[in-house]
């Protein structure tokens, strides 16, 4: 399962509605213009959970759980993105553990992972 949507167009040209898939189906979260390459935003899911959405430099979208499992705080969306061996990750702003954006796995502790969600951009309806 991959949680990314490849978009060949440059990040700034992203247009449309960002959607994320939960158990209940696709959920519209925000418009693509609200995302800043290299940073994230938090989204509240219908079941009360939180997701963190990110856009990387090359225009790929990702969504993982927002709650940092090491501190219990909803902060992963506030972390910095990075790349290591072709994997894009977010570093938690609290204790700096890194989470793979593609699958939510913690790169610094094999036993820990956060949820990951498929994401897509639905072109804006004219």
């Amino acid at each position: 399962m991959t949680a990314t949507t490849d978009l060949s167009s440059p990040a700034t040209a992203l247009r449309g509605t960002v959607e994320l898939r939960t158990a209940d189906g696709w959920l519209a979260v925000c418009s693509a213009e609200e995302l800043l390459p290299g940073r994230g935003v938090a989204a509240l899911l219908p079941d009360g959970r939180q997701a963190a959405l990110f856009l990387d430099r090359s225009g790929r979208l990702y969504a993982i759980g927002n709650v940092d499992p090491f501190t219990g705080a909803g902060v992963l969306s506030h972390g910095l993105l990075g790349t290591v061996q072709d994997r894009t990750y977010v570093a938690s702003p609290l204790l700096k553990q890194r989470f793979d954006l593609a699958d939510g796995r913690c790169l610094d502790d094999d036993t820990v992972a956060v949820a990951s969600y498929p994401v897509r951009v639905e072109p804006a309806r004219a």
Binding site: M1, R21, T22, A23, A42, L44, G48, Q50, G65, V67, P69, F70, T71, G72, A73, G74, G104, T111, V112, A113, V114, A115, S116, Y117, P118
Partner: peptide, 30 residues
């Protein structure tokens, strides 16, 4: 909607962060 994970409890007449019980793995949905 305020972030529900940010919670406080009183201490010495002010607030402090509510201690959090950690569940280290969230099940992967979808």
């Amino acid at each position: 909607t305020p972030d529900p994970t940010v919670r406080f409890v009183p201490e010495r007449g002010q607030i402090k962060p509510e201690p959090i019980l950690l569940a280290l793995t969230e099940t992967v949905t979808a």
